[in-house]
């Protein structure tokens, strides 16, 4: 196969199959990203509130939310009066 610079992924795609685990991970991340960003559209939320709204375990919300902060989709808001929980909002 002729290898075109900038499109070498096609070469590896011919030789190697993408694992089901990699496909599932991508699907799960996209699902979580969509759910979290959708929930935050209505306003800032804490992790506890997000977890209740999405009916998802809190540790999972922490992991995906913090990943979305890292990737620049979400920004950290203010901490509550007890200095315990931060809110999170969609990054403008």
């Amino acid at each position: 196969m002729e290898i075109e610079k900038g499109k070498t992924f096609k070469y590896l795609k011919e030789k190697r199959e993408v694992s089901q685990q990699a496909k599932d991970q991508l699907k799960e991340f996209n699902r979580m990203k969509k759910s979290i960003l959708e929930a935050l559209k209505e306003g800032e939320l804490t992790i506890i509130a997000l977890s209740e709204k999405l009916n998802m375990p809190e540790p999972e919300v922490v992991y995906y939310l913090m990943s979305l902060v890292k990737y620049g989709f979400v920004a950290t808001g203010e901490v509550d009066d007890m200095d315990e929980y931060f809110t999170y909002k969609i990054k403008q």
Partner: peptide, 23 residues
């Protein structure tokens, strides 16, 4: 990370120096 890469080519499309090389 080839074990988790889905070989979509998105990285290569945006790379300004064409340094990504799946060969």
């Amino acid at each position: 990370d080839i074990e988790n890469c889905v070989l979509c080519g998105a990285c290569e499309k945006v790379c300004p120096t064409n340094c990504i090389d799946f060969t």
